[in-house]
């Protein structure tokens, strides 16, 4: 049946196969944004004409479980954040499912700092950390709508939290002292959160 439907099927299919790299730019970007960032970068590096595409990712989704070990994970994220156009990033998800990695706190704090500092349009931030990780003490993101923190994410006393657009706050198993600090800051800045999930 297929042959009658596609008289010159063989040739046409070969052309289609070759032209996968001719996907419209916007469609390619969309596909990349659906992929976990590790696979998005790998896709971008599969062909010369796409090799810079990963620097335009607007959605970052990183899970340490997807990497061979912690060192690879850290190298990958370091490289990603130094190459990507951070000002375009709208969604940033970072799940650190490991323990006993000495530089973790400083490094991850640096990453988060860079992201909230440069990504002026950041709308969604999710951070999970199995080992203690302190948020930057100046935590300000004007466009942030969703903030999800879980595990050992800590907030220092006298932190300056400024999230005027926040709509949803999800604090799962975050230490009560840290959660309280965020909430007090939000209440004192009169931020109206529509959705709040607390689980200690």
């Amino acid at each position: 049946m297929e042959n009658s439907e596609f008289p010159s099927k063989k040739r046409t299919m070969e052309e289609v196969n070759d032209s996968i790299n001719c996907l419209p730019e916007e469609l390619l970007s969309l596909i990349l944004s659906f992929l976990p960032t590790k696979e998005a970068v790998a896709t971008s590096l599969s062909i010369k004409s796409w090799r810079k595409h990963w620097t335009f990712l607007t959605t970052i989704n990183l899970n340490s479980n997807d990497f061979k070990d912690v060192t690879f994970f850290h190298q990958f994220v370091d490289n990603l954040l130094s190459g990507i156009k951070l000002e375009n990033v709208k969604k940033f998800v970072l799940l650190c499912n490991y323990n006993d990695y000495e530089p973790h706190n400083l490094v991850v704090r640096g990453w988060i700092n860079d992201v909230i500092d440069i990504s002026k349009e950041l709308e969604y931030l999710e951070l999970h950390s199995e080992q203690p990780c302190v948020l930057p003490s100046h935590f300000s993101a004007n466009e942030l709508k969703v903030l999800k923190l879980s595990g050992q994410v800590l907030v220092e006393p006298r932190s300056d939290v400024n999230l005027p657009s926040l709509e949803a706050l999800d604090l799962k198993s975050v230490r009560s002292a840290s959660a309280t600090r965020i909430l007090v800051e939000l209440i004192s800045s009169r931020t109206l959160v529509k959705y709040l999930l607390l689980k200690f």
Partner: peptide, 19 residues
């Protein structure tokens, strides 16, 4: 497509797309 491509390396991605 995202689910199918999860965990793939650069050369595996080339293979599935015939790149």
């Amino acid at each position: 497509a995202a689910d199918l491509m999860k965990g793939m390396t650069v050369s595996q991605i080339r293979k599935i797309f015939h790149i």
